[in-house]
Design a protein around this nucleic acid. Structure first.
Lengths: 234, 234
DNA sequence: GCATTTGTTAAGGTAAGGTTAAAAGCTAAA
DNA sequence: TTTAGCTTTTAACCTTACCTTAACAAATGC
């Protein structure tokens, strides 16, 4: 069952330990981004969405706590796990104050780390149900419910959308009347940008056009070499 | 505004340590019930509502894990923290499997325990408002009493549901007409998310569909790759 | 005009879900 | 300890949903 892999941001300055840990996590089916210091960690955090952050406390320039605070500032939800030196009780307390979800004393057992990660992810899965993201769109006479993945015309029977159809239409709707760059959809939805994914996307555009046919005021226009534009006339 | 004190169930067989810990927690404004063994722990658990359970793993008659399982059986929500002997990695892993929220290696620092308790309470505070303590549901012409695990149609003879059937239907009912994510059911009910538990869940969906057949306005729809939706038409 | 990008349809492969039945686990009573 | 009666998991087989790829036509831009 191909579920979306969970993404972990690992910030650890020790290159040996960091690499090993990264590989271990990858082996266990996580998608890992490894930053070598606090600065880099924050940069990478801003660029992507992560399901979990693992931060080393002791790092040059910017320590784990400072980084954690910055992260909390941007996104108060993402779980944070600290790696602290053994016996540094102060670190543990400080960590919890910054809003850590858990911590691990170095050296730690890798299996225990895995279990913690799992437990934390499970917790978050529970909370984030009512995640009030944007999933309700009005597109001309259409209503898109991108959470339940259906599209209804003029209050009629809803049509079911596939995950890709849904995501793509949602992205277009978010940019209504504006350019939705090809690249954006490819990186956000397909998570890869090559000839084939690009063609695949074109196939989906064709499908969406078919769905949207009932309302002739709604159309998806192509901007050659740039992307697409969802237009609602009048 | 006088806030309600949080109630902790402490199950610890060592009388000295147990008493000291109890007093320490009371000093920090918790209401503590102290049980001296697993048996007594379960009895006290059944009698009261607790906000948190602290269980010693090593106990005569009934160890912490067994107790945890029984507790989970009755109430899948209450947070559980294990006290394990240092270096007993096996214990830690086992604990997480039973659905522990955290663990502490003995001897531990009392301040760290306090922080953990606080962190856990905070977490739970957010989620438990929504779904905890709801046991009575009307689903079309059906009545579900998830405390007694009864499902009755149109006021008729109730059918007895198994624990898993009951939990699953309850989760679906909590999200009536909305998406109930696969992941949610797997982590909340099965406490594990893998191919087999997922298939097991599908089997239960089939069972529930059979139970719900008498009312053709009630149905369980699948949202491919996301989860299920309990729909009540009209 | 020619290379490139896009439009569109259909085929094929893969994974998820529906369902039933058998196997494995449990628990409590004999 | 065995047995009976449940609950739960695993297995098997089949259907449906999804996504990619291929193929060819049409449009675009230099």
């Amino acid at each position: 069952m191909e579920e979306q892999k969970k993404r972990i941001l690992l910030v650890e300055d020790d290159p040996n330990f960091g690499t090993v840990l990264k590989d271990y996590l990858i082996m266990n089916d996580y998608e890992v981004t490894h930053a070598k210091n606090g600065m880099e960690g924050f940069e990478k955090f801003k660029k992507d969405d992560f399901d979990l952050c693992i931060l080393d406390v002791m790092m040059p320039y910017k320590d784990g706590f400072t980084l954690a605070k910055e992260i909390r500032d941007k996104n108060s939800d993402v779980p944070i796990v600290f790696l602290t030196a053994k016996t540094m009780k102060e670190d543990v307390l400080k960590g919890y104050k910054v809003g850590a979800d858990d911590y691990l004393n170095k050296p730690f057992d890798s299996e225990v780390l895995l279990m913690k990660i799992k437990a934390i992810m499970q917790r978050k899965a529970t909370e984030s149900i009512s995640d009030s993201k944007q999933f309700q769109f009005k597109i001309g006479k259409f209503d898109l419910n991108s959470k339940l993945r259906f599209l209804s015309f003029d209050g009629g029977e809803p049509v079911k959308l596939s995950p890709k159809e849904n995501e793509l239409l949602r992205l277009l709707a978010l940019h209504e009347n504006d350019l939705m760059p090809r690249e954006l959809a490819l990186t956000k939805i397909w998570r890869d940008d090559n000839y084939f994914t690009s063609r695949s996307m074109d196939v989906y555009i064709a499908k969406l056009r078919k769905y949207l046919k009932p309302d002739d005021k709604v159309e998806i226009l192509n901007i050659h070499g740039e992307g697409f534009r969802l237009v609602v006339n009048e």
